[in-house]
Design a protein around this nucleic acid. Sequence first.
DNA 1: ATAAACCTTAGAGTACACACCAAGGTCAAG
DNA 2: CTTGACCTTGGTGTGTACTCTAAGGTTTAT
Lengths: 137, 137
Amino acid sequence: MKIGEFANQLGVSTDTLRYYEKHNLLTPSSRTGAGYRDYDETALKQMEFILRAKNVGFSLSEIKELLQIKFKKHQHSCHEVKNLTIQKRDLVAKRIAELTRFHKSLSILADRCCGGEEPADNCSILTTLEDIDGLTQ
Amino acid sequence: MKIGEFANQLGVSTDTLRYYEKHNLLTPSSRTGAGYRDYDETALKQMEFILRAKNVGFSLSEIKELLQIKFKKHQHSCHEVKNLTIQKRDLVAKRIAELTRFHKSLSILADRCCGGEEPADNCSILTTLEDIDGLTQ
DNA sequence: ATAAACCTTAGAGTACACACCAAGGTCAAG
DNA sequence: CTTGACCTTGGTGTGTACTCTAAGGTTTAT
Ligand SMILES: [Zn+2]
Ligand SMILES: [Zn+2]
Ligand SMILES: [Zn+2]
Ligand SMILES: [Zn+2]
């Protein structure tokens, strides 16, 4: 299968596929006489793996690690895979916590402001950002 | 106050201050004879505004908008400021929702895997990413 | 034979928020 | 008067995940 059809089937762009190849995430199975990339069933499975991993939040570099483990499963342990997963989960949790703080502060700011059409001279959002620290905590 | 002292007081780097200047977030009040940046009380207040806005999650380009409103408050309305805040809050909420989905999927994956030291040949994390879609939903 | 649709490469551009570096000017202390 | 700490500009590098462009080669249909 040539790159265009392969990309269509997977719902990604040909640029993305070339990008993944360059970054060692997915090498096409072979090349045609004209030098065109040729993808087969194995490539399809691997690309689906990549997309699923993306869907649960892994970054491309993390996916690369997972793929290397997948290629040589007997040289790696469950422990290693679980660690990668847990580390990612904890990182995600931290980011969620930070964003939740942001969300709370922004809600407080928004709730206090009248949102009217009058000039913003006394807007509580601006004055809070100017003067007080009553948000963090 | 020269840039070094100013940066120290605020807990940021001189690079950051030059970066903010280049991107029109904070212009030093004046320059000394030698061309050195000179920051005063007004600059301090503005920088504190910027840091507070960063602390509630606004990006630098959003902060630039807020500053432009702050400079000419009577030309803008509460409505406008509240809108910026609400839009940001909703964006943050979306991102939180996405990360929460990630977190849930990663937790499921991690919980299923034994995490032992045996080879990863039958690791449930890998097989799930290979075969099934039992995560999304 | 020629146009459309596909493919190739290498390289640049995007957004974000800085960090780092080189080459040189300035200022205060000893 | 020289050392060291500070300052200047302009430019490059970082990480993430692509996206777009240019200049050209290939395939398929008409
Ligand atoms: Zn109001
Ligand atoms: Zn208001
Ligand atoms: Zn196991
Ligand atoms: Zn396992």
